[in-house]
């Protein structure tokens, strides 16, 4: 049997992003559709970050909404109140989300399932804080007077095509970074920690430090996309920015697409988001998440490696034979 470490799917990656980039042209680029795709790509970024933590860090997070919300609020406040340029505040939003993840470090001492619960509890804290710190965040009423994305080299990022192009590029960059980490010795060690922690530590791997890095990186990416989202939609309130769906949807997207693959979460995010918005919400207005929950259960039981995982396994078996 060949190692399941798939070859860098460079060609597949390039093809997928060409399709993604060309999609609006092919479909006539209605503003409505572009808006949906932009949201789907935001979700794709978060799903990628979630899967990176799950696959490489061996940590299931039920609290990525915290990082998403922190990134969004931090960037919106820095740009709106301090007047910093948005191109600076967006990465700063990511950094602050990573900083927020540091407060979770004690939870890394907890074993796997308990860590998952800790991050679940942790996510709630931020929503409550954002609601209560109303002098800063506008409280439950929300925040809406802060700048949108700027124009860079003649490309108006505030326009839908501009935002779309930026997001495609960033998601692609995220995929490349993820693939590179996964193939490095760091990625190997991380995968080893998930299954055999003592055996990995005994050869010199500082497992807590590595996990902390993955958590911070995942939080950074999530915060970055949270910040972009804040500037794209131009409005924030705690119940939206820290909404449970920012934790739930990335999980479903990643599991659906295959969270052990690089492209799975991205493809999953696009499919799941469109399904949720176009199909599920149409069928059931309130409680449409029940369909996503059922999908999640079905995927874990029938295809725990996701749709891409299934394909990759078949391909891998053939290559190994």
């Amino acid at each position: 049997m060949a190692s399941p470490r798939a070859p860098l799917p460079g060609l597949a990656l390039a093809a997928a992003f060409l399709v993604l980039a060309a999609l609006p042209l092919l479909l006539g680029a209605s503003n409505y559709l572009l808006g949906l795709l932009i949201s789907a790509l935001i979700l794709a970024g978060v799903a990628l970050a979630w899967a990176l933590l799950g696959n490489l860090g061996g940590m299931v997070s039920f609290g990525h909404a915290a990082f998403f919300g922190v990134g969004g609020y931090a960037s919106a406040l820095l740009a709106g109140k301090l007047g910093l340029p948005v191109l600076l505040t967006v990465p700063l939003g990511g950094l602050l989300a990573a900083l927020a993840s540091l407060a979770m470090l004690p939870a890394l001492r907890l074993s796997g399932p308990y860590f998952a619960l800790a991050i679940l509890a942790y996510a709630q804290i931020f929503r409550i804080l954002a609601t209560e710190a109303s002098s800063l965040t506008g409280g439950a009423a929300g925040l809406q007077r802060y700048p949108g994305l700027p124009t860079v080299f003649g490309l108006d990022l505030a326009s839908r095509p501009g935002a779309y192009a930026l997001l495609v590029a960033l998601v692609a960059l995220g995929c490349l970074a993820y693939a590179a980490i996964r193939r490095s010795a760091l990625g190997l060690a991380l995968r080893a920690i998930a299954e055999s922690e003592d055996a990995t530590r005994v050869v010199g791997v500082n497992s807590v430090l590595l996990k902390a890095w993955m958590l911070a990186l995942s939080a950074f990416i999530t915060g970055l996309f949270g910040a972009l989202n804040a500037h794209i939609i131009g409005f924030l309130e705690p119940d939206y920015a820290f909404a449970g769906s920012w934790s739930v949807l990335p999980i479903i997207a990643s599991v659906f697409g295959g969270y052990r693959t690089v492209l799975g979460p991205v493809g999953g995010a696009v499919v799941i988001y469109l399904f949720d918005q176009v199909v599920a919400k149409g069928l059931i207005a309130v409680g449409h998440q029940i369909l996503l929950g059922l999908l999640l259960v079905a995927m874990v039981l029938a295809a725990p490696n996701g749709l891409l995982g299934l394909l990759e396994r078949k391909g891998g078996a053939r290559a190994g034979a």
């Binding site: 470490r5 010795a185 190997l188 060690a189 995968r191 080893a192 055999s196 005994v202």
Partner: peptide, 15 residues
């Protein structure tokens, strides 16, 4: 206690 899911060479590489 091998590092499971890694190949033999990858085990040594990490070490």
């Amino acid at each position: 206690q091998p590092m499971k899911h890694l190949t033999v060479r990858e085990n040594l590489e990490v070490a």
